[in-house]
Write a protein that binds this DNA or RNA. Sequence first.
DNA 1: CTGTTAGCGCATTCAT
DNA 2: ATGAATGCGCTAACAG
Lengths: 356, 356
Amino acid sequence: MQAAPPTLQSIAAEFGVSSATVSNALSGKGRVSEGLAARIRARAEALGYAPSLPARALRTGRSGVIGLVLPDLANPLFPKIAQAVEAAAAREGYGVLIADSHGEVGAQTAALQRLVQRGADGIIVVPRRGTRVLELDVPLAVIDTPATPGNTVSADHRAGGAALAAHLLGLGHRAFALVGESRESSVQRDRIGGLRAGLPQTARIETIWLEEAPETDFPALARDGITAFAATSDLHALRILTTLQRAGLAIPREASVAGFDDLAFAAAVTPSLTTMAQDSDRIAGAAVAALMARIDGPEPAAPPAGTTGGSAGGTAAETAVPMTLIARESTGPAPASTRSEPRPHPATRSQRETTP
Amino acid sequence: MQAAPPTLQSIAAEFGVSSATVSNALSGKGRVSEGLAARIRARAEALGYAPSLPARALRTGRSGVIGLVLPDLANPLFPKIAQAVEAAAAREGYGVLIADSHGEVGAQTAALQRLVQRGADGIIVVPRRGTRVLELDVPLAVIDTPATPGNTVSADHRAGGAALAAHLLGLGHRAFALVGESRESSVQRDRIGGLRAGLPQTARIETIWLEEAPETDFPALARDGITAFAATSDLHALRILTTLQRAGLAIPREASVAGFDDLAFAAAVTPSLTTMAQDSDRIAGAAVAALMARIDGPEPAAPPAGTTGGSAGGTAAETAVPMTLIARESTGPAPASTRSEPRPHPATRSQRETTP
DNA sequence: CTGTTAGCGCATTCAT
DNA sequence: ATGAATGCGCTAACAG
């Protein structure tokens, strides 16, 4: 039989005052005589009084909880986001309720509604591939890509792709395989798009969507002259890396491999994986900040006149957070001469002559 | 300006009755005339009425939320647990509030208290290495190892280790490196312990704790005659696998490598990683079930007389969930002859003769 | 200035 | 058998 936890009422009774007085004393809001206030605070402290958040929620209409909806909790990228969101939310005194949309739009909608019903003050959603989340009666922050309408904040996947391209280019590579999983994912499209944009017209570029070509023979590509492999996820980069390695290619001497997201294993493999990392902390921080602003602000539903839709919102938060290259061992200078030199690619040739 | 959501009161007003009547009609508890009840239900349905969970929480003292405390959200094992817990909880109509203890005991305690304050009806905690969680005024389920006092449910890490040992043994291996990160982790100790227990006295066994020997030279071990490497985590197994591979050893022809947990990348690498998987769904399900039982049950605080502490609890839930071997490509038959045959190990010799 | 009354939305008593 | 008070713990709007 555990003792009932102290409440404002129980403390008030001890002092022969009303619970409201105790509330005021503790919050410093309504004025209470300093002497009484001090004694009340001392007593509350001694009792280990902690306000009942559910009761406060009922009264104020604010639960102090935000929801986090993810497309797939099993996704290895999730930990970083979850951790960053949890930390940012905790810093603001908020709790985090998670929900898994299992990659389905229906489940995503259902999850959102469940969170709303639970009283979430705001929701952060990482939408399923290319899904647009419906408007809701609750502040929403969307983490997807800058290109997505309604996106609140996200990594600048496109610029990240371009930066990775530059890295590879600087290493002397001129023949690339760009590997993604699904075209449906706007994140992946942006990354591949950025990669392409960062590569010169003259470069040889093979784009591979694993969903469509799951049996791609990477060693064969390497033998065919591709020297740099860039995948939209470290998971695929790892697959490529180990596959090439097993086929007898030395990484990075004979081929370079790079991925995205700096997943947990990226630093653990040999050779360690070069990758473009997103600043999850900053993204989560911005998402939470945007939520806070929309929760506190009276939310002028109508965007300020004269703005053409788009990123018009209450608070103009930063939208695209730069990614940072983590250059490790899996990328290195392009092989001096393409060993077997098969089907010499014209573009590659001319490029090479201008780049000693 | 969004319309105020319907409440019991607002619906009651439409019918000129009291909110309690509507509550009864919808819940079917207190009796209401069937005709009225039906009309009320219809109206509620039409309005899309959803009870305010915060209000219900205040009234009933039950929030419909459970907490999930993890030692490190960034741990790659986390997604599986989180997903399984979320699914199991959702099935029971519960929400899941997450908290990261950052591997610190202080933070772990703080996280627990925050969750309690938020009104969590129960908490599932995966304790920090070897930490014992303090008793609390809220039902707790601990996922650690069967050996830990207070453990509610967990994978049978020891048996898992033994099973992995048997697998390797069956493949003809007689010289093993057992690789863990930290002795402080009871999970890791159990896995290593199970591994050792499953190996014959005659086998050669090197146990390596990476925390103490971070610079361990695995290829050197292989050259020294070790043919099987078993790590307590896929992350370390991956490190070993790629390191050996890079040093020119063919896996599994010249050495076998296995890990634990079937992390996301285990199937993606080449060769794919043999691993002992825990049944996260079952573990999470059991943890949630145990919580539900303790929440619903009046919780007889005193254990039934005549029981010597230990696993005595309200509901005797299943404690140790078997792990399952996922044999993939990274393990194979031991090399027929230890190539360099350095310092011929007597034990290994004699063993080998009895096992053609 | 100090402190109290009122009521958030619900479910559970209790009186008809 | 039906339905109307009551109060969970808190704070925002009031009265002393």
